[in-house]
Nucleic acid binder design. Structure first.
Lengths: 219, 219
DNA sequence: TAAAGAAGTAACTAGTTAGTGCGTTAAGTG
DNA sequence: CACTTAACGCACTAACTAGTTACTTCTTTA
């Protein structure tokens, strides 16, 4: 009998090839889920460690504290959506088509990434104290607002959009009509006595939202 | 020397006239603040007791558990806004004026009662498990949706509104454009590099929202 | 005024929770 | 193959937290 365990017995033993990047990534993914499910205050570090199939000690080794881990998760989430928006290449489209595409993208991004919404909610509960520290996000956001501003200007000079629309107000509105529907889907389904997450309901809402934005901007 | 303490010494001693209703009310008020500030998970029962100037035991005496206390706070919040909406007497107004007034009311209610938004967010984080149990809220909400439905019908038959607008979609949109702006005011102020809570910004947003809804419904 | 019930309090418990100290083991380097 | 570095893991702690036990004090009413 050798000292090292035989293959068949003790299935819990894992030789675990060492990979810092992979472990970090697993922790971040698990943290995103746990934070979005329970908020910063409600999330449990032990649960994150378990979900990530990592030791809790590793979390503190790589991320220093629960709050710093949250900050990293949040930054990653913002960078992800801003990157995806840039990839839309809205500048290549006609103004109306560009805006419609943006509304649709925003809606579908929220649908596919429900953690994003909950993370942002949690961050606002804490008065954006973590986001304040992040410079990368400010730069990425500036680009995004300018992009929508350009679309509005192009549309206005072509005569298809009303002139003088504030890109910030428009951006907020585009986000709002999707975000609110989804973040409040649980209370909403009760208040309105309708399953807001049924396939048809979701499709209907997207159509309604595109329509809302078009009526808002068109001349 | 009498056994009971003299007036001037021992200032911490409070005879505290007994008043169950007043104590309950103080606990509810303190709980609303604490829950809205920190969420259900982040709120501390000891803090609520202290803020309410009550003993923690009283919380469990009157409200059974932290969760039941949260449920009561949430119910009260919903009943408050639904009651206020009914008092608007929108049926007495012209359709356009009625809708504009509703948009304005919703905005101002959220502004004056920031706890409402945070409580609803917290409840959605918990998948509306507390709201599900409340029958009063369902009844009050039904009334509200019907009210908006009536306004839309009156407007359509007068020819000022487009026909066929879904009152639920409209309700959600009216709430969304105010709610999102305010719940995300902290991250929003960073992302958009603008103080979203400045007096002018708030006035501007209300105008934008009234405009958005008018363009959406008008024929 | 005595008895009963309700309001109120302090101190405690049992279970969690973020964060650490310290030892172990794998992998890269000379 | 030694040796060093970094990944990894166990077991602990100090502080906290929802909920409770057992008690005192006030108020009402028969």
């Amino acid at each position: 009998m050798s000292i090292t365990n035989e293959d068949t017995e003790k299935p819990a033993r894992k030789p675990r090839t060492r990979d810092a990047e992979a472990t970090k990534a697993r922790i971040l993914e698990a943290a995103k889920k746990e934070f979005s499910k329970n908020g910063l205050g409600g999330a449990r570090v032990d649960v994150i460690a378990e979900k990530a199939n990592a030791n809790k000690r590793m979390i503190y080794h790589y991320f220093e504290s629960k709050e710093r881990l949250f900050q990293t998760v949040l930054e990653d989430a913002y960078i992800d959506i801003r990157t995806a928006e840039q990839k839309l290449k809205l500048d290549d489209l006609e103004p109306k088509a560009a805006l419609a595409k943006l509304v649709q993208f925003t809606w579908e991004y929220y649908l596919k990434n429900p953690e994003f919404i909950t993370l942002v909610n949690s961050e606002n509960l804490h008065r954006a104290k973590h986001l304040k520290k992040s410079e990368v996000i400010k730069v990425a956001s500036r680009k995004f607002v300018n992009m929508v501003g350009d679309i509005l200007e192009r549309g206005a000079s072509k005569g298809v959009f009303r002139p003088g629309i504030d890109p910030v107000q428009l951006n907020i509105t585009i986000a709002a009509i999707g975000y609110y529907y989804l973040t409040n889907r649980f209370t909403g389904s009760i208040i309105f006595e309708r399953d807001l997450m049924a396939k048809e309901a979701i499709d209907e809402r997207l159509q309604f939202n595109v329509d809302t934005i078009m009526r808002l901007v068109c001349a």
